[in-house]
């Protein structure tokens, strides 16, 4: 029943959009601009996420996070090595302190570590 409701709403929304787009053809800006550099950056980050999930299951949390932070900062256009290094280490130490030392969470272990 919920599914059918969702489908019904989508159909109505589709019709509504079609009617409106006929009225104001080509005037509106698209909701997601697939050609903007920001969105490209986000797609790059999607790919990094998947890599992160794979690396974490293989090598464990700490290694994966170190690599992840470097990758995200590079993707966001940061190129100064000192900044990247400090942030990476800083974030990992911060997370480790908060979650493992204070809260006692055992972070995900990898298959090789």
């Amino acid at each position: 029943m919920l599914c059918s409701g969702l489908i019904l709403c989508s159909v109505i929304l589709l019709i509504q959009t079609l009617l409106e787009s006929r009225k104001a053809a080509g005037k509106e800006e698209p909701l997601i601009d697939f050609h903007s550099p920001g969105v490209h950056c986000v797609f790059l980050i999607f790919a990094i996420m998947i890599a992160y999930a794979v690396i974490m299951s293989l090598f464990g949390f700490i290694v994966a996070t170190l690599l992840f932070v470097v990758a995200v900062m590079l993707a966001m256009g940061e190129r100064r090595p000192v900044w990247i290094g400090l942030t990476t280490v800083g974030i990992t130490v911060f997370i480790y302190t908060v979650f493992t030392v204070i809260m006692g969470v055992v972070l995900p272990q990898g298959r090789f570590f």
């Binding site: 995200v72 900062m73 942030t87 974030i91 990992t92 911060f94 979650f99 969470v105 972070l107 995900p108």
Partner: peptide
């Protein structure tokens, strides 16, 4: 932002994991 956003992401990962201790949650 360059420092803030990775921090948010990592916080999300660990926070999600910390509740049920399952990697599937991540």
């Amino acid at each position: 932002e360059v420092i803030l956003n990775p921090l948010i992401f990592v916080f999300c990962f660990v926070g999600t994991f910390a509740v049920n201790h399952t990697v599937q949650d991540i």
